[in-house]
Design a protein around this nucleic acid. Structure first.
Lengths: 202, 202, 202, 202
DNA sequence: CATGAATGAGTCTTCATTCAT
DNA sequence: AATGAATGAAGACTCATTCAT
């Protein structure tokens, strides 16, 4: 009955990832101990090492499976959009709202990742990959809008895409840090308003 | 001659802070050792502990003295601006350009700080203080522009200010992480362009 | 059909011993893991524990069955010798040559055993038993030679036997450690030459 | 006062080496813990790591400083010998007797080293270096005897030297393992007797 | 009987902090 | 005041052994 076993193993793996995520969110990567993760996941340290070869690998997996999928997610969730304006609007929604409602921990995980970026090359590259992925997608959306004549023709798609990505992560960080007074709804509205006024023809 | 001694002490203190900054920029706070800092500052570990009561305190001081002054800096550098538009423009310049040219390490120090924010309440509050300071200043600038009739009257100063602050730090982080393809000049231009189209009356 | 089962069990047992020997020869006893042995023998760890109650017992069995039989082997291989001189000569041959040609791993296994002798009383006693066995046999050979008038009458059989045994193991160790420049044939010749000049009458 | 400090440091270093030697002699290298060594040397674990960068380095140093000097020792102790025969005789004495009387632990340390030889390349090479050193010295002694006409001209100096070295270590091992019935004095006598009968002209 | 996942005590090593000199 | 040797608690990781399936 390999099926049951496979399922079982995958469940364990996810349990570990969930536990690790919680622990990392609580104390950051460096201060989290393998023991913390083991206890929280209900496994022994030894068992944990059957699923991941090191503490670092757990972090990396978390980054790939929880942060790295942002571009895919964006693509899927905006696939059925009406036109360029709708697509832009949805992207902003997803970032500034949906991500936090549907996957509330992702924001804080991003914070953890940035915390490690300086000292861990692989984490840093994970973040940059994500950056590339999202920027690539946004640029395509913008370029489509330009070609279709919906957006002003002289907009620099690449730069605007990068800028929006930086904005999104900046907001995410402060939001994940519980910045008082930082509310997402008004920000979403203002961002869209700025984008609209900037990209509109005339 | 207590004065000489005082000066001497202050020099030592700054030497330690400089050393710590370099070390932190290189390996992050957690991975930096007190020994690293001592060696780099040319002092002994013991001496170091006469100036700061703990490794953590060094980091905190660094935050206060190097990051926390951003609002003051902004204020000073834009004091002689011509009008609201000039002031806005200068703010963007300072963030997206000047900070990195005049104090190039500040960006990376911010990265270090975000890395610690999750696990260290005081660091986190340092970042939030800085946020409050900058946002407060930007809001004042915008409000002045609204009152003077230069900016559209229905703009939400608080939200726009927060948004710009988040954008600034988002850009800073990716820039400090050496993101390939991220160039500051074009971003500066596009940000100003967006702000202009958004804040302009009609 | 219990017979088949018995045979099967014995095959398994030998498979484990062979695997263990290979692994021990490769990394020594302490660094070898039970998992290594299991993998190499094609069995599961659990299965392995049905044949041997502990890692240590595997080593002990190996010593008994592979090293401990040296005296028997000597006896068997020299049974049909012509006289004392021929018997001595054959003993030297067996040690310095045959052991390494017919059972090349025995030398390295001896190395493993010596590696454990210090910390494991039972291994140590295994080595001493082997010593006693071989020395006993050699002494008998020498004494026979003395009685038959072939060897000089004042030779101390016990001491010469011990000495040859020590020499044999010393050579074996250095040979097993791949000492460059250590060749067996010349050593064999010189040993025999020394023994001959020493034991000859006059 | 750097002199006092230097002396102090060297004393500490030796204390650690002595402690390590005792512990290794008791349980072998692998089973000895760094904690054992620390406790026995009266230092903390941390202090120990100020003097040696790893457990392995302690072992290596022990080998170099306590085992590796055998060739030098031999040379020094036989420098004032009368002639080839006297020199040979002294070499045998030193090995079979003096080493154990003056440096009783060396024999057991050799045992420890052989125990690690299989799994640790550097230890193995340490042993082989020692082998080379001693064999080189013995060969020189024998060759001198041949040239001076004291020893038979057709003796193979290299082989005889290797053989004696193997014999010496074989005896040392069994002696270090407390082999009952193995007495050094008679062995010394018989070895010399064999060497004499073998090397004498005619 | 066989499997191999799980256990958890035990290892080496690091490093913030103290304190005798 | 300064030094840097010493401390020792804590952390990542391993592996012999067990036991549910």
């Amino acid at each position: 009955m390999p099926k049951v076993t496979e399922t079982h193993k995958e469940q364990r793996r996810q349990a570990i990832l969930n536990a690790a995520e919680q622990v990392f969110l609580g104390k950051g990567y460096q201060l989290a101990t393998v023991d913390d993760i083991a206890v929280r996941s209900g496994l022994s340290v030894g068992a944990l090492y059957r699923y991941f070869s090191s503490k670092s690998e757990i972090m990396l997996t978390l980054m790939e499976e929880r942060l790295g999928r942002t571009p895919d997610l964006l693509e899927r969730l905006t696939a059925d959009a009406g036109g360029p304006w709708d697509q832009m609007s949805r992207c902003v929604d997803i970032f500034v709202l949906a991500l936090r409602v549907r996957h509330p921990s992702t924001g804080r995980l991003l914070l953890v990742a940035w915390g490690e970026a300086l000292q861990d090359r692989i984490v840093r590259e994970g973040l940059l990959d994500r950056f590339r992925g999202v920027v690539g997608y946004l640029r395509a959306v913008i370029e489509r809008g330009i070609h279709s004549g919906d957006f002003r023709p002289d907009a620099d798609a690449e730069v605007l895409a990068s800028l929006l990505m930086c904005l999104a992560d900046g907001v995410t960080l402060y939001w994940a840090a519980n910045t008082p007074g930082l509310e997402l709804q008004p920000i979403r509205a203002t961002v869209m308003s700025m984008v609209r006024s900037y990209l509109s023809i005339q």
